[in-house]
Nucleic acid binder design. Structure first.
Lengths: 136, 136
DNA sequence: CTTGATGCAAAGCCTTTGCATCCCA
DNA sequence: TGGGATGCAAAGGCTTTGCATCAAG
């Protein structure tokens, strides 16, 4: 059982069509610790399958996001980045000096926001928290 | 002493040049409860001063943001919105049904994020939290 | 086969910028 | 009067889309 098959199953189970392009993109995104943007993914995908187009990367990210397989990270003054939907809930911190994107582990933030939303009469659907910070 | 003068002083005290366009834009932004985007501001400004250009609105928002007078709100799939730098710290909630942007009062979120950053060895510079939610 | 997926290139949207002119300090 | 601010229009960066073709189911 190759890893490739796992990614195909992931797509299939989400009710999505399995194409070589989608399989390539999902495998790249699954196997990186980065939070790549579309250009990153496009360039890496090209080295594995030179038929992939940027349009397909964009369309695939959109499809994957709607299917709940991928999370889109919207940052200021930079193209969106993506990560596979995290198993362990986390938020993000941008190191202002290096530009690095660091994951903030834990559900502490989520549960606070959940409570805050509830207190305002809302049910939280999702949240987006980005901290900009510098190393001490 | 008119309000107009207050806005001019606000600019002057920030070390910025006082121009009719900036004064108009600051007054509009100060007197609204909305969180207008550039287009909103441009259209409103036009009704008061038909010399204002979109480019100036963009440049003014950038200048005001750098001066710490204005906060930029970056949202998904929508142009950035702006608000005068809040006196009372707050975050934002997007009502997914109405599209309305609601302010979340209090510093509870900020202090949690502050602590979280510190625990990771960082000093928080700013944070950006947007909750997407539905009315219960 | 039929319908959705893809590649390509063009278009779209928001934002920035070059340049000549203007005007605040 | 000098340097920053403005208007205009063009360009830029990221993303979406129309259309013909392709291929998954």
């Amino acid at each position: 059982m190759t890893q490739s098959i796992d990614y195909k199953q992931l797509l299939r189970e989400a009710g999505l069509r399995v194409t070589p392009q989608r399989t390539t993109i999902v495998s790249l995104l699954s196997e990186t610790d980065d939070h790549p943007n579309v250009e990153d993914l496009y360039e890496k995908a090209r080295t594995l399958d030179d038929t992939v187009s940027v349009a397909t990367v964009y369309r695939t990210m959109s499809v994957l996001e709607n299917a709940g397989l991928v999370r889109k990270l919207v940052l200021e003054d930079a193209p969106a980045r993506y990560e596979m939907m995290p198993q362990t809930d986390h938020d993000h911190l941008v190191d202002m000096d290096s530009g690095e994107l660091v994951e903030i582990p834990g559900t502490e933030i989520a549960s606070l926001l959940d409570r805050v939303a509830a207190e305002m009469g809302y049910e939280l659907v999702s949240h987006h928290t980005v901290i900009r910070a510098r190393k001490v």
